[in-house]
């Protein structure tokens, strides 16, 4: 394990990330539209529509309450779909990893490269949505926007690893629907994006804490509302890092078993 070994390792990881970027930019508009359009749609329908009935949530307008969570939800969706459907198609239908593994590339490099990619994508998406929402005056202090990239990154990694894990475990592509319905959608709705989670039954709160999204939402709320940023980052950021490590390790283990026999 010399220095040159690690320099080669990171170069190979970078090539995987770079490959995904080349593919992504080919269909830039199509790839970016759901992440921009979905939060916009929700802001209009829920924020303006429902928000005219719900006028006070923890002392804020409903739009103000909704903004940080939606920003982070884009990181969840972009990373999960990339590493579930996207990765699965490359692994099973196109078999591209089989060919990559005949080059100096190894499974570790592939997984790390994919994770860096979803992390970067999560960071960029979170900042992008954050900028738009800040223009609507939903952010106390727009100078804090760069911090959203950190949150986007460390939310996208465990969520992406959940996608990878499901790629290794599903028996056909339709089974992602089940993962979506029973894991991703509940996460989205029960992670304190749409209402203060403190109102929920303790069992639901405990369950939500177990998954990464809620911690990212807490961090984004701290940024948007400019409240207790440092302590939130330490506590929830720390939890996210631990969750990332655990989920990535499990996902790597499963993917390796699929690719190397």
């Amino acid at each position: 394990m010399t220095l040159s070994y690690f320099s080669e390792f990171f170069k190979l990881c970078f090539h995987i990330t770079h490959r995904n970027w080349i593919v992504f930019k080919k269909d830039f508009i199509a790839n970016i539209s759901p992440t921009v359009a979905d939060p916009a749609l929700i802001m209009v329908s829920l924020g303006l529509g429902l928000g005219s009935y719900v006028t006070n949530v923890d002392g804020m307008t409903y739009m103000q309450f909704l903004a940080p969570g939606l920003t982070i939800a884009t990181a969840l969706f972009t990373s999960f779909f990339e590493s579930s459907y996207g990765f699965y198609v490359r692994m099973t239908f196109e078999n591209v990893f089989k060919a990559m593994l005949t080059t100096p590339m190894g499974v570790t490099e592939i997984v790390v490269g994919e994770m860096i990619w979803v992390g970067l994508k999560g960071a960029v998406m979170a900042v992008g949505v954050g900028v738009v929402l800040a223009l609507f005056g939903l952010m106390q202090n727009p100078w804090l926007i760069p911090l959203l990239s950190v949150v986007g990154f460390i939310v996208a990694i465990p969520c992406g690893a959940m996608g990878l894990l499901s790629s290794a475990m599903v028996r056909n592509i339709n089974q992602f629907q089940t993962v979506y319905s029973f894991v991703i959608a509940p996460l989205y709705f029960l992670s304190g994006i749409f209402f203060p989670i403190e109102e929920m039954a303790p069992a639901v709160r405990t369950l939500a804490d177990f998954f990464p999204l809620i911690h990212g939402v807490r961090m984004a709320q701290a940024i948007f509302w400019q409240k207790e940023i440092l302590s939130t980052f330490v506590i929830h950021g720390g939890i996210l890092v631990v969750q990332s490590l655990v989920i990535c390790a499990i996902a790597f283990n499963r993917i390796q078993k699929r690719l190397v026999t």
Binding site: K11, L12, A99
Partner: peptide, 24 residues
């Protein structure tokens, strides 16, 4: 390889360039 396993998202040239990168 027994299966072609070409990267369908990339063109012929891009496929080969990315493999050049993999090979250092």
């Amino acid at each position: 390889t027994q299966d072609n396993a070409l990267d369908e998202s990339l063109s012929v040239y891009e496929n080969m360039m990315i493999y050049c990168a993999f090979l250092g």
